[in-house]
Design a protein around this nucleic acid. Structure first.
Length: 197
DNA sequence: CGCGGGATTGACT
DNA sequence: GTCAATCCCGCGT
């Protein structure tokens, strides 16, 4: 199926975050080629969004977020887990979509990729993959043929782990396939996700 | 240059 | 439910 091009990512971030659900992520890494369906995302809108790394201006770490859409933004969190984002919106606007969960397509335990730190470990994505184009032959997303996957209701709710973000903490910018086995467990979240459809 | 804290996870009570 | 692991970043001194 069609590979997602830069124009796909060069759009409003909330739209990209929703549209990425159900797409296939492909990565050729240290474990060989690994593929997974994206089943959970979060949008980070930079500038005003206090949950975003870019809310306090341009720094060496968040530099990729300011760059052109369709590139990776990979950073280390809590000293041990890599998080994979895909940069969105035109160059100069810091925004990205965090990939929070995948359904592994090789028959592996669906929980092995049920979290942003878990899926990078499974894929083999590390800091050396920061700011790489996601439109290459070895790292990309693509459409999945209709009927190829089960249909899920798309749910939305507050983003995980951003309790420091003031008013932005509660923005419903997390999107996921409701009841999907690979969606991350939102632990201390008391928020009730709202059905989108 | 030191310090506080994080877009998490898994182990343990 | 609670907590530690672990290190880079960003900010204040």
């Amino acid at each position: 199926m069609a590979r997602l091009n830069q124009a796909f990512y060069n759009r409003p971030t909330l739209q990209v975050a929703v549209d990425l659900l159900g797409k296939k992520l492909v990565f050729d890494g240290p474990h060989g080629r690994r593929e997974g369906l994206i089943v959970e995302t979060e949008a980070y809108l930079g500038f005003d969004d206090r949950a975003s790394h870019a809310s306090r201006g341009r720094t060496p770490r968040n530099e990729p977020m300011f760059g052109p859409a369709g590139f990776s933004y990979v950073y280390l969190v809590y000293g041990m887990h890599w998080c994979l984002n895909i940069v969105t919106e035109p160059e100069g606007i810091p925004a990205a979509v965090l990939i929070r969960a995948l359904e592994p397509l090789n028959g592996a335990d669906p929980r092995i990729t049920s979290g942003p730190g878990k899926l990078t470990r499974w894929l083999g994505v590390t800091g050396s993959d920061n700011q790489r184009a996601l439109t290459s032959d070895t790292f990309f997303c693509e459409d999945v043929a209709p009927g190829q996957i089960d249909s899920y209701a798309i749910a939305t709710g507050p983003r995980i782990g951003v309790t420091y973000a003031g008013a932005w903490t509660h923005k419903p910018w997390r999107f996921y396939f409701d009841d999907h086995l690979s969606v991350s467990q939102a632990r201390k979240s008391h928020a009730v996700a709202m059905r989108k459809s």
